[in-house]
Write a protein that binds this DNA or RNA. Structure first.
Lengths: 203, 203
DNA sequence: CTTTGTATACGTGTATACATCTTAGCAGAT
DNA sequence: ATCTGCTAAGATGTATACACGTATACAAAG
């Protein structure tokens, strides 16, 4: 629970990248001893969200533009492959379900919780691939990016572009044109990378 | 240190897949309290080597053939991409260094520590890509496989095939034929997957 | 004989206390 | 004035003790 709480704080931007995460401070804040805090920090370290250095404390991760670029390259690699595999196993029922989730995510596109809907869509999209481990790796990479999206990009106004991309991906899948769907996904991710990198250069 | 020790034990097969890892027995075995053991288990859980279930203890991971297949597919995806990027940045000096490591790994090919040399070669091969995070992900996946190689495959006798592959990859790189080098790497990994899966079906 | 409830034992989760390390601050020498 | 060395404060690492949850064994009811 403490790990989940900390994760939310990191996502929301309450703990900016590079912030020092003192065990005692967090323990007092949550009203528990340091042991559960240590466990939580180790869990988050395993997810790559915090960086623990022996005898020197934990920090919220801080990425260089070069690392952000690498992470998005990895996402392109893993997500495009996952979509391709999912397309091979896609059923009409699954497509219907994904579209339902897409429409629901349209609603809270302007709320602070827009990212949850975005991830729900992509998750549903990749699920038919039957690759749980790959999906977990993708989620980890997405969360790592989220930290920086929250920190640098206040609230994307280019949202419509994203929603259009989602719809386009689905339409191409329904038409059986996997390559086109994958191409849209790739450009979808590249656009997000460019947006974030531009913001990092600015701020 | 305890995490490293446990990792070695898991690799060497002393702790077979699915083995229950009790905090108390491990604490007694290492002559320390349970706290450092908890930390070590969380570290290994972050690396995906052990599975921690709340209030129910930790176990060495146990993979189904389907999951092994997925992991090798991920390795093909990540390692081939990494090699391609490395080939683009490869210098004559780097090739010389890799070949030096390859020749050294030839020597302890029949010893129990053959896997270290194997990994050293691949690591040197991918390093010029300048993708540290991707390299870390690959290492994690390789370690996960290693657990099962140790458990099911006593000592591969097909070693010569692997060493030949290593040499072939280098030769293709020296010739500037990246696609061929990547093709050999892919078949290299596929062969390892087939070998392990066959052993799992048998045992 | 199967099933359900309970009690006991075992293991994990957490709090407190102590040991160790890092680091900031300051005094002194060059 | 800068650098070296020491000292003290704060944080992390670890050990011990206790609280809680889970699982197994046994007993009793259906």
């Amino acid at each position: 629970m403490i790990a989940a709480e900390l994760r939310s704080d990191l996502m929301a931007g309450g703990l900016p990248p590079g912030a020092e995460l003192s065990q005692v401070v967090l323990a007092e804040r949550f009203g528990v001893s340091r042991i559960p805090v240590r466990d939580a920090l180790r869990i988050l370290a395993g997810e790559g969200l915090v960086d623990i250095q022996p005898n020197r404390g934990a920090k919220a991760i801080s990425l260089t533009p070069r690392e952000v670029r690498e992470i998005y390259d990895l996402r392109v690699l893993l997500e495009c492959d996952c979509l391709r595999r999912a397309a091979a196993n896609m059923t009409p029922g699954a497509l219907e379900e994904i579209d339902r989730i897409r429409r629901k995510s349209d609603l809270d596109a302007s709320t602070p919780g827009w990212a949850e809907g975005d991830w729900a869509f992509h998750q549903a999209l990749y699920l038919p691939a039957g690759r749980l481990r790959q999906l977990a790796m993708i989620e980890t990479l997405r969360r790592t990016c989220r930290l920086f999206v929250s920190a640098y990009a206040t609230m994307p106004k280019k949202k419509p572009r994203w929603l259009d991309d989602h719809r386009a991906i689905l339409q191409h899948l329904e038409a059986g044109e996997t390559d086109r769907a994958v191409a849209v996904l790739r450009s979808h991710l590249e656009a997000a990378a460019e947006y974030l990198l531009a913001r990092m250069d600015a701020g």
